[in-house]
Each structure stands twice: as structure tokens, then as C-alpha cells.
Nucleic acid binder design. Structure first.
Lengths: 262, 262
DNA sequence: CACTGTGAAACATTTCACAGCC
DNA sequence: GGCTGTGAAATGTTTCACAGTG
């Protein structure tokens, strides 16, 4: 440790690192790394996101009875190229057989281990509106491993009402309930104005990670991991590509710095 | 130049490029680029995602009456560092004033222009379950610019029923309705099994971009832009970080290839 | 001989650091 | 003096291409 990330304001609270949703980029892969002689280098952030996709594809294949799979086949199903797939899998260790491929079972096990899916991660959903409902009813999220164990809302009419089998608690009880029930992941599905205060309460309740659906940049202590899902941003990125395509198609001209302008 | 993107199968259908949600990485920024002597280089993919965030922050600031903002302030609010912010804004052109900062109004206008937000992009939502409802009720998505103009579902009981003011149509009518209404963005909120077929119909209806909430890798023609939002993947990435942290904390040891294993 | 595992090259993104301007 | 804009360095990611192996 020691060598902190350069510019860092003195405060204990920093903006959730990435401005983007980035399942890729940023961060030197594992912990601090660099000046620390002990810590080894680990899996690139970008690869982690893909491992989760491979896992799903592999599980589907296993269900279909496949026992073995080659990088070419798996990569096609996962929408990446085979070199990338092989490189990604190589971060787990050497679990393939040259000339043959990978054993589906083994790969599933290794990816699960690497992603920490052998432990359970209890989830709390905050904000039981349309989206919160949808999330709560997912009922024990993706497959197994992410049981929803607490729900919160401000609405007095909602408090006490069970949704997907779990009674809704009040926002004020977030810290107590979360630490009682050992929640490790908080999902924020509130309006943007409430998000930061909800986030603070989740953190004080001992939650380690936050998945944020509210369109705001959360400020969190640095040991908290935040990921965000931002509809507006996604749509605007798509919009950019539509616009770019339109520009490319017809007579576009360059502006000062050489950028296509229209 | 010349050098085509290596592997690219001859088929007209390719897996949606990125395996990850990646608002960053992959793609040489703008269109073909490289062998084309005319086309200029453009905004990095990673920067585009952040521009959308800056836009939101700037809009909030404008509402609060701010007329001018310095890179340090804006970057803090957006959760990035100021160098990155300045670099990102420089892709738009030179709209700042040295010694002063940026004019909020101007920046908002430039980002909107760059993201193609001056045109409207009509949206269709497919799959009116919990999530679809939530999306439909967003009622003209983020602010302005993304009006929801069509809804689809298989459920006969739902067809004809208005949700958020728009009557639900049947899946079979996707191509006709989409091309009639000039839909440019399709949002898939169906169960995974239906997603690919829905996607195909959206494409045949002339939709240019797809936002996919279903946990499957869609295969699309290469001129179609796909982005995905995958809850399972997000949670598993968080899980990875929890696990990594736990490993880092206590006596971890390295395995063959030098990776932290537990 | 097909297919994995991986150095090394190519590419993309971020950060540094400072020249230049108001 | 304070702050933008940007080359150049550093870092991270993807792709190539091939040696190695069951």
C-alpha cells in the first residue's frame, strides 16, 4: 500500500471512481499494486465482466449436456473472439486440454470460485417503485447466490407490506436492518434525490457494494465498490452512434481540430 | 491500412461486439478509420459514456443557476479527475476560457449536439412484465428526446391494454409497427428465451439500436448497435470485488502463475 | 493435428505535466 | 494567477501468431 492514487482530495469520501458504467477499464486490475512488493497482479477488470458472461453460457451448455467445449465455440456463443476468451481463461490457471478444449464442469467451477460465487451475498433493495418491484420479484436474483433479504422504502403505506415474500422496512431502518441481516450488496432504485442519503445509510449498515440505478454520481468511502446502471446514459450512447452513422453516411466535413462535425 | 479487423466471419450476422456492457473500450473510436483517408478520428468510446454524465451534472448546475464552471468542480461532481474531464471536453472542440472555466450553457449545447440529442429517437419497449412496466412508465425516458412510442408483449391479455398511455401490441407486429412509427431504438425486456427472436423482428422493423436487458448474447447484423444491461453480470462483478477484498485482507497465497488464490 | 496458452505487438485509455492564454 | 488544452508518458486491453502439448 502507501502509494495512493495521485490526486485524491483529503476527504474520506470520494466520488465513485468511474464516471462510466465501465465493466472494463480503470484500476490496475487487482489491489493497489505497484509499490507493494508482496501483492501479485490479478485479473484485468475487463476480463472479470466477461467471465460472468462465459459462466452463463457454460451453464446453459452444461444443461444441454455438453461436457467439453473448444475456445472457438465458447467464444462465438459469448460474442467475443477466441483469443480473448483463451486469454481470459488463462487468468484462472491452465484448465484446458490442448487439442481438445475445456471441460465445461471444471470451467464453471473455476469461474465461480474466481468470482466469489461460492459464498452467498445477501442483497437489499431500496426503493420499491416500479423498478424496485421488478428487482424484488426477481426473487433471489440471478440463479442462486444473491438472495434478496431486505426491502426498503419511504412510503408509509408500503412499510410492512410483503413484496416477493419480504416485508418492506422504512428507510430509517436501513443501517440497523442491514447490519442485523448481514447484507453485503445494496441496490438503489430510488429517485435520484434520495440516492445519496440512502447510499450513506447502506454504508453505515455495513454494506460493501452498491448497485446504483439512480441517475446520480454517488460519493462513497473508498472501500465501497459502486457500479451503476444508467438508462439515460445507455440511451445517449446509442443516440451518439445513430448520429455518427448518419454523419458518416452523407457529406460530412471536418471542423477545426479535425473532428467530424456534421 | 488494409488490415481488416482480423477474424470477422463472412456471415451477415455477428455477435453483438462486446461481451461486456462496456461503455468504454473496443472500437477505434469512430467508423472504419484507418484505411479511409477521408474519415477523421473521433471521440473515444469511453469518453462518450462520460459525456452523458457530464451533461446531466451540467444540467443540474444550470438549474441551480450556475453559468460558469471550472474543470475541477465539474469533474468532482461527475466523479472523474479533472485531466480526464478536460481531455474529454477537448474532443468537442475548444469551448473553455483559460483562467476562467467553461460556460455551462455552451457546454450543454455542445454535448447535446455531439451525442445527437438534437434529433428525437423513438423508443419501443418489448416485454411488458415488471421491468417493461417500469420502463414504459418512465414515460418519455430521460428528460426529452427518447419518447416511448410502442409497446409489445406476447400475452394476449395485455395486447390492446394501454400502459403509460400507449396500447400494447403483439410481438408479431413488431416489424410493421416499428417501421410505421419510425422507431429507432428497441428495448428488450423479455425473458431470455424470447430475446433473440424479438431482436430479429426489431431489426427487420428498421430499428437501428438495441438496449438489451435479457441475459443473452444477441446476434445481430453488424450495422446494429447493441448495448446490454445485465443484472447478473453486475452482481457477479461486485461479488468478485468482495471476494478479492476478503482475500487481500488475510493470509493469501499465490498459486502457480502468480495469482492470488485465497 | 487440433487446440490451448502466452509472449510480444498493436491499440486504446488514462494520467502527467506544462505551455499558453485570459 | 488560475485554468484550459494537449503532447507525451504510462498504463491497460486486445489481437496476433506461434510454440507447445495431449
Amino acid at each position: 500500500m502507501v502509494a495512493r492514487r495521485g490526486r485524491r482530495n483529503g476527504s474520506a469520501v470520494t466520488p465513485a471512481l468511474d464516471a462510466d458504467n465501465a465493466p472494463t477499464a480503470e484500476m490496475p486490475a487487482v489491489g493497489v499494486n505497484g509499490s507493494d512488493p508482496v501483492r501479485a497482479k490479478s485479473i484485468p477488470e475487463a476480463a472479470v465482466a466477461r467471465l460472468a458472461v462465459y459462466l452463463r453460457v457454460l451453464s446453459a451448455m452444461a444443461e444441454q449436456g455438453a461436457t467439453t467445449v473448444a475456445s472457438e465455440e465458447l467464444s462465438a456463443a459469448a460474442g467475443v473472439n477466441s483469443a480473448k476468451l483463451r486469454k481470459d481463461l488463462s487468468y484462472l490457471g491452465s484448465y484446458g486440454t490442448r487439442g481438445v478444449g475445456y471441460e465445461v464442469r471444471v470451467l464453471v467451477g473455476q469461474i465461480e470460485r474466481t468470482l466469489g460465487l461460492t459464498r452467498q451475498h445477501k442483497v437489499a433493495v431500496v426503493g420499491i417503485g416500479n423498478l424496485g418491484h421488478a428487482l424484488a420479484n426477481y426473487g433471489g436474483f440471478p440463479g442462486r447466490g444473491f438472495p434478496v433479504e431486505a426491502l426498503f422504502d419511504v412510503d408509509a403505506d408500503l412499510v410492512g407490506v410483503p413484496v416477493g415474500g419480504i416485508p418492506v422496512s422504512h428507510l430509517d431502518d436501513i443501517p440497523a436492518v442491514c447490519s442485523e441481516r448481514g447484507i453485503s450488496i445494496g441496490v438503489i432504485a430510488t429517485p435520484p434525490t434520495a440516492a445519496q442519503s440512502v447510499c450513506d445509510r447502506l454504508v453505515s449498515g455495513g454494506v460493501q457494494c452498491i448497485l446504483n440505478f439512480a441517475p446520480v454520481v454517488l460519493q462513497v468511502p473508498e472501500h465501497i465498490e459502486v457500479r451503476k446502471v444508467d438508462l439515460a446514459v445507455e440511451l445517449q450512447i446509442l443516440s451518439f452512434h445513430v448520429a455518427r452513422r448518419a454523419d458518416d453516411a452523407n457529406g460530412s466535413h471536418k471542423v477545426g481540430n479535425g473532428m467530424v462535425v456534421r
